[in-house]
Amino acid sequence: MVKVFEKRESTLGAADLAGPDPVSLSLRVNGQTFSFVAEPRRTLLDALRYDLGLTGAKKGCDEGTCGACTVLLNGKPVYSCLLLAVECQGHEIETIEGLAKGGKLHPVQEAFVEHDALQCGFCTPGQILSIKALLDENPEPTEEDIKRAVSGNLCRCGAYPHIVEAARAAAKKLPR
């Protein structure tokens, strides 16, 4: 391995260093490409909210504990506050704004309305995206599967029983 470290100068030159000043970034969100300029320290959450104007993902704890910032990255739920925007380039990101199509709510959104699965609504975008990702992968989840799917989304209003009901109802509604 020793020989590796003799190449210091040339290797450093070859690596693509970005920042700390703002750099051009490009994100694929809800099927659209957005280009903007931000520092490498920009989190995906801040990029969505401030650079793209998509405020559906909420900033709660900003440290990966509450789940209000949940979005889907390549179809999987992630905390957007714990990802750097610069590292999300080239991936498919889905936010709550991308769920309704042609003015019609997504079946999970409809089920949340019908089953009164929220009070204040702050955690709701995250809850819905976690459940959407679950149903995409597992169209017939058990109650345990649903609880596990939203175990990283805190609801301070305690709407959990209704959230589980809404998820079960959405599972029945979704085309198999």
Binding site: T11, A15, A18, G19, P20
Partner: peptide
């Protein structure tokens, strides 16, 4: 603030 680099390969990652 920080600089950011995607490691192109293991050797470069270690040097960086």
């Amino acid at each position: 603030r920080f600089r950011h680099a995607d490691a192109p390969d293991l050797e470069t990652a270690i040097v960086l």
